[in-house]
Amino acid sequence: MPTEIQKNIDAKALRQKLARWFRQHGRDLPWRRTHDPYAILVSEFMLQQTQVVTVRDYYARWLARFPDFTALAAASEDDVLHVWQGLGYYARARNLHRAAQEVAAQYGGQLPDDLAAIAALPGVGRYTAGAVASFAFDRATPIIDANIARVIARLLNLQEPIDTKRGAEILWQTAEALLPPRGGRLHNSALMELGALLCTPRAPQCLICPVREHCAAENPESLPRKKPRPKTVALAENCAWIVRAGKLLLEQQTGSRWRGLWKLPVLASPVAKAQLLLAFDYPFTNHRVTLSVYASRAPLTLTPAQQWVSLTEIDSIALAAPHRRAIKRLAAQDALK
């Protein structure tokens, strides 16, 4: 535990002020109304790289379709991806599915109150394991998400980039130093909520912050610091629009990026003099992808991954989001005729 943290922050006083503020101002979020480990785990997977406002509806639909570990474990991957579609980062859905299968197989569908067991599940890292232990089982364990990282970096006026090994170590050590002896649910919820509502990336509301007396930040908006971002890489994705008797040819993906999802068949390069029907850009990690869709002829034989799909069935299959967007736009233009 770093000595500078002990000297500069009165952890007990900070916790008390933070708890009082949270009881008055904390949002009523659906995953805060339950201590069910499964529901908590679902919310944590969904909230990775996705905003709360987007997750709310998906969370409710998911729990209605897959109410517990056993139900999710028994589902097919196609069903899982279909319910997840629109949230993006589909590896999260596949990992959640695998995690449910492991809980069903190893623990009879009941996740144990054991940090090591939780951390061993597919797709569960240090943060998610701590969050489930804290929010489901009320364990006093440290967690660091983007909101908490920002709060701690400002409390310490931390100049070290938080995405370096040393910066991450300081964040986790501080989070542990601030923990109460017991009852991690309230403390971690409050710390996270402070970052979401007041200690925001831009225009933080320092004047009404309940722990401003403990904050050393001289220029809050400049924190946390991070390493320079990699340059955006431009990619071209050329695809075929192939129709026959009102049906569209689709291709199921086998690669790691969109494995299990359907999309328009890939063209190695645009066919000479082919008609360009549609083109738009979409982001993917540090890439900017230009999706171009060309009118094309049906192949003589289909690959095992290809299938003719009626437009009326489009909503029932799991499509990669950019390709769903392209199909909807072209269908609206009567491109199936």
Rank of each mutant, 00 (worst) to 15 (best):
residue 20 R to H: 14
residue 84 W to V: 15
residue 316 S to M: 04
residue 112 P to E: 08
residue 243 V to C: 14
residue 299 P to W: 02
residue 205 Q to L: 14
residue 141 T to E: 02
residue 130 G to H: 06
residue 130 G to M: 01
residue 276 L to K: 07
residue 108 G to L: 06
residue 276 L to E: 10
residue 232 T to H: 06
residue 181 P to K: 12
residue 305 A to V: 14
residue 85 Q to M: 13
residue 64 A to E: 15
residue 136 A to M: 04
residue 331 A to E: 13
residue 199 C to D: 13
residue 71 A to V: 03
residue 150 R to C: 13
residue 144 I to P: 12
residue 327 I to S: 00
residue 141 T to P: 05
residue 24 Q to T: 13
residue 67 P to G: 04
residue 185 R to G: 08
residue 185 R to D: 03
residue 260 G to I: 10
residue 17 K to P: 00
residue 227 K to V: 14
residue 148 I to W: 05
residue 300 L to F: 03
residue 311 L to W: 02
residue 266 V to M: 04
residue 259 R to M: 09
residue 301 T to G: 00
residue 213 E to S: 15
residue 219 N to F: 09
residue 97 H to R: 11
residue 250 L to A: 06
residue 207 L to Y: 04
residue 274 A to L: 01
residue 147 N to P: 12
residue 21 W to E: 07
residue 145 D to P: 12
residue 278 L to W: 13
residue 123 G to Y: 01
residue 305 A to K: 11
residue 139 R to M: 15
residue 304 P to K: 06
residue 103 V to M: 04
residue 319 L to N: 08
residue 127 Y to R: 08
residue 300 L to E: 13
residue 164 T to P: 08
residue 326 A to T: 09
residue 15 R to G: 09
residue 108 G to W: 08
residue 152 I to G: 05
residue 79 D to W: 05
residue 304 P to I: 09
residue 257 R to T: 15
residue 279 A to I: 02
residue 243 V to H: 01
residue 233 V to Q: 12
residue 300 L to Y: 01
residue 84 W to P: 11
residue 51 Q to L: 11
residue 26 G to M: 05
residue 255 G to Q: 10
residue 93 A to V: 12
residue 122 P to W: 02
residue 287 H to Y: 14
residue 121 L to V: 02
residue 188 N to G: 07
residue 202 R to K: 14
residue 108 G to A: 10
residue 92 R to F: 11
residue 249 L to F: 12
residue 31 W to N: 03
residue 41 L to I: 14
residue 2 P to D: 00
residue 33 R to P: 05
residue 2 P to I: 08
residue 320 A to S: 13
residue 300 L to D: 10
residue 154 R to F: 04
residue 48 Q to F: 07
residue 11 A to N: 03
residue 233 V to I: 15
residue 191 L to D: 01
residue 63 L to E: 02
residue 70 T to K: 11
residue 188 N to D: 02
residue 204 P to N: 01
residue 95 N to A: 06
residue 196 A to S: 14
residue 12 K to D: 09
residue 132 V to F: 07
residue 91 A to W: 01
residue 41 L to N: 04
residue 19 A to D: 11
residue 64 A to W: 01
residue 157 N to M: 05
residue 24 Q to C: 06
residue 315 D to E: 15
residue 19 A to I: 13
residue 285 T to L: 10
residue 192 M to F: 06
residue 241 W to N: 00
residue 67 P to C: 03
residue 192 M to R: 05
residue 260 G to W: 08
residue 195 G to D: 08
residue 115 L to G: 01
residue 335 A to K: 05
residue 171 L to E: 07
residue 168 A to F: 00
residue 208 I to G: 01
residue 113 D to K: 14
residue 264 L to R: 03
residue 26 G to P: 02
residue 18 L to T: 03
residue 63 L to P: 00
residue 314 I to L: 15
residue 78 D to G: 05
residue 281 D to H: 09
residue 33 R to F: 01
residue 291 L to W: 04
residue 26 G to Y: 07
residue 261 L to A: 03
residue 201 P to K: 02
residue 8 N to T: 15
residue 137 F to E: 03
residue 107 Y to M: 05
residue 239 C to K: 12
residue 306 Q to T: 09
residue 331 A to P: 00
residue 286 N to P: 05
residue 174 T to M: 04
residue 77 E to G: 08
residue 96 L to P: 13
residue 155 L to G: 00
residue 146 A to E: 07
residue 108 G to S: 03
residue 87 L to M: 15
residue 131 A to G: 10
residue 174 T to D: 05
